[in-house]
Design a protein around this nucleic acid. Structure first.
Length: 432
RNA sequence: UCCUCGAUAGCUCAGCGGUAGAGCAUCCGGCUGUUAACCGGAGGGUCGUAGGUUCGAAUCCUACUCGGGGAGCCA
């Protein structure tokens, strides 16, 4: 084989020429004297046609012996063909087996979730999972592109931390030589420190929640982008959120057309996603819920059904702002005119995907934050550094966290966030 | 933690008191344009585990194990 090597996505540049493609056998159909080999290489899927009378007995038999997911190099002439799904087909002239594949577990038929998750290392080879992982990569690129070009500096917080950042959720405990350490559940507090050093920053990495949550919106380990801005207040915070989410969705629409199509996503629903997003206050949300038959009183936090009901009223993400101080985190800045609410907001994705962003202006006054530490019974020794930020040149600042997998699940129209991450960590599932 | 549903061939499932079944996958045979190809044949089972009811249990009951979905909590 001396012909040039190409990938399936670039095969159109070689029409009429003989090329080599390295890949895996996705599927094979045979009809006695003609065989159709569907080859995938990570960039796409293409059908190679082997006709017995043309390739000869030996090569035809070699094709015949290839099994699902065996790796191979095919050589053939690229043709345009209206019958082919990608528009191109390869007339096979040669094939070399690279690695065999015996009794490949994942067939082209339907499988159950349990089985697929046990075989996640192989499941990701299927076209649908490939498309999702491609979208994931583009979402991450869009996040970086947007923030980097808006003067944010990426700063990576530690994964091992001395204790909880928010004090509420369950943490994974581990040994740190002679003391206990915990896997981070948020990089926010470190991002606040970094914002005082660099102005506008963001952290982007995995976070861990040891909650026994078993829903389609939950992962034990997930990725979060957490921008934090010095000298920014509540209004600007919400504007950055809208602008970032708009950029992510529009970027994916233009760069992942094929992938969204492969996923069967109704892109007309995504096309609407442009800032400004609808905004309502917590007060108004409560009013609306009560007038629509929900049993909820001012002062209670929303449950998932409440969020879904509210989000269903809009064709783009909904921002709900100014929640009661009592239901939100200790570090959130109270509304100066109404201390019973805080300057925070949640962004709820459409189509039932739930909360994708939670953000707030942070308390920047030393005395107020110190008071909150007391009322929330937080250990001032482990958080002395966090209070220090208010002691040395404190400024108003705000930030938010965007859940990557929920965002991907929404954009891709997935049933469950577990497909939005290569190897999901779920409740009681640590394999593979 | 609670509620709810489920576990039968490698996979997806049917069978719901009376001899363990189908499709796909695998193997063999047929087919020169297949699109989850199709057609014929073969092999393949401690019916999640442990008890109980019954002449008889995959089927009914109890407990346990594992898993799905949801609630709470969260992104």
């Amino acid at each position: 084989m001396a012909s040039p090597v190409t990938t399936i996505q670039n095969v159109g540049a070689y029409v009429g020429q003989t090329v080599q493609i390295h890949g895996w056998l996705y599927n094979k159909r045979s009809s006695g004297k003609i065989q159709f080999l569907q080859v995938r290489d990570g960039t796409g899927l293409i059908q190679c046609v082997a006709v017995k009378s043309e390739v000869g007995e030996e090569i035809f038999e070699r094709c015949n012996s290839l099994t699902q997911e065996s790796s191979l190099t095919v050589e053939g002439i690229v043709r345009e063909d209206a019958r082919a799904q990608g528009g191109y087909e390869v007339t096979l002239v040669g094939v070399e087996a690279v690695g065999p594949s015996q009794d490949y577990p994942i067939t082209l038929k339907e499988h159950g979730v349990d089985f697929l998750l046990d075989h996640r290392h192989l499941w990701i080879r299927t076209p649908r999972q490939r498309a999702i992982l491609k979208v994931r990569a583009e979402v991450m690129r869009a996040v970086s592109d947007y923030l980097d070009s808006h003067d944010f500096t990426r700063v990576d917080p530690p994964v091992l931390t001395p204790s909880s950042c928010e004090g509420t959720t369950e943490l994974f405990e581990t040994q740190y030589f002679d003391e206990s350490a915990y896997l981070t559940q948020s990089g926010q507090m470190y991002a606040e420190a970094a914002a005082m050093a660099l102005g506008k920053v963001y952290s982007f990495g995995p976070v861990f929640r040891a909650e026994k949550s078993k829903t389609r919106r939950h992962l034990i380990e997930f990725w979060m982008v957490e921008p934090e801005m010095a000298f920014a207040e509540h209004e600007e915070n919400m504007q950055v959120q809208e602008s970032l989410v708009t950029h992510i969705v529009q970027h994916v629409l233009t760069h992942c057309e094929d992938e969204l199509k492969a996923l069967g996503r109704d892109v007309s629903k995504l096309a609407n996603v442009k800032a400004p997003f609808p905004r309502i206050t917590y007060d108004k949300a409560i009013e609306w819920l009560k007038s629509h038959g929900h049993e909820i009183e001012w002062g209670e936090d929303f449950g998932a059904p409440h969020e879904s009901a509210l989000a269903e009223e809009y064709d783009r993400p909904l921002i709900i702002e100014r929640y009661p101080t009592s239901v939100k985190a200790f570090y959130m800045q109270p509304d100066p005119n109404r201390p019973e609410v805080v300057l925070c907001d949640d962004m709820i994705a459409p189509e039932g995907y739930g909360e994708i962003i939670g953000g707030s202006e942070r308390i920047h006054d030393y005395k107020l934050l110190a008071e909150r530490f007391e009322t929330h019974n937080l250990p001032t020794d482990t958080y002395a550094w966090y209070l220090d930020l208010r002691k040395y040149g404190s400024v108003p600042h705000a930030g938010f966290g965007l859940g990557l997998e929920r965002t991907i699940a929404w954009i891709c129209g997935l049933e469950h966030v577990r497909e939005a991450i290569p190897f999901p960590r779920l409740l009681y599932r640590l394999y593979p």
